[in-house]
C-alpha cells in the first residue's frame, strides 16, 4: 500500500468513528434525561397556603415539591432573639431580616442541610429546631448553630398573595 492510500483510509476510519460517536451520544441523552423531573412534576412547582388560622408561636408544616416547609408565626420575643444574634459568631452568617422579609413569618424548607432529615420543632439548645438524626441545632431563624450541618435551613421562594395566603414557589 502506498503512503497516500494509508492516509486516506485513516481519514475515512476517523470520520466514521467520529460520526458514530456523535450518534451514540445523541442516543444516550434521552435515556439520561428521562430520569429528570417530568413535565407534570415541574408544573406542580407552586403551592398556596392559607395561614389565617396560625397563632403566634405556632408552626405549621406543609408539603411543597415533596418536602416539608415550616411556616412559623413568630412571637415578638422570638423575633427579638433572632435579631439579637451576632452575625460574626455564626457558621453561616445570615441576617434574620434576609431570612424573614416579614419578621412575623418564617417560611423555610424543613430539611436539615446535613443529610436531609426533618428537624424537630422547638427543640435543641437554641429554642429553634433540632435534627434528631445527627444532632444539628438551629435557632429561631433556622440558622445552624451547633452540630454537623454546614449551612442554615434553606428559604424557598415565596410571597404573600394577600394577608392570609402565602404562595410558595
Amino acid at each position: 500500500m502506498t503512503e497516500k492510500k494509508t492516509n486516506r483510509r485513516d481519514f475515512l476510519f476517523t470520520a466514521t468513528y467520529a460520526v458514530g460517536a456523535v450518534g451514540a451520544g445523541a442516543v444516550i441523552w434521552p435515556m439520561i434525561d428521562q430520569m429528570n423531573p417530568d413535565a407534570s412534576v415541574k408544573a406542580l412547582a407552586s403551592t398556596e397556603v392559607d395561614v389565617s388560622s396560625v397563632d403566634p408561636g405556632k408552626t405549621i408544616t406543609v408539603l411543597w415539591r415533596g418536602k416539608p416547609v415550616f411556616i412559623r408565626r413568630r412571637t415578638q420575643e422570638e423575633i427579638a432573639e433572632a435579631k439579637s444574634v451576632d452575625i460574626e459568631e455564626l457558621k453561616h452568617p445570615e441576617k434574620d431580616e434576609d431570612r424573614a422579609k416579614n419578621p412575623e413569618w418564617l417560611v423555610m424548607l424543613g430539611v436539615c442541610t446535613h443529610l436531609g432529615c426533618v428537624p424537630l420543632d422547638q427543640k435543641g439548645d437554641y429554642n429553634g429546631w433540632f435534627c434528631p438524626c445527627h444532632g444539628s441545632h438551629y435557632d429561631i431563624s433556622g440558622r445552624i448553630r451547633k452540630g454537623p450541618a454546614p449551612t442554615n435551613m434553606e428559604i424557598p421562594e415565596y410571597k404573600f398573595v394577600d394577608a392570609n395566603t402565602i404562595k410558595i414557589g
Binding site: 475515512l12 476510519f13 470520520a15 466514521t16 460520526v19 458514530g20 456523535v22 450518534g23 445523541a26
Partner: peptide, 12 residues
C-alpha cells in the same frame, strides 16, 4: 444522520 453514517461505514 443514519444515512450519512451508513455511507461512511459502507466505504470503510
Amino acid at each position: 444522520y443514519l444515512i450519512i453514517l451508513t455511507v461512511l461505514v459502507y466505504f470503510s
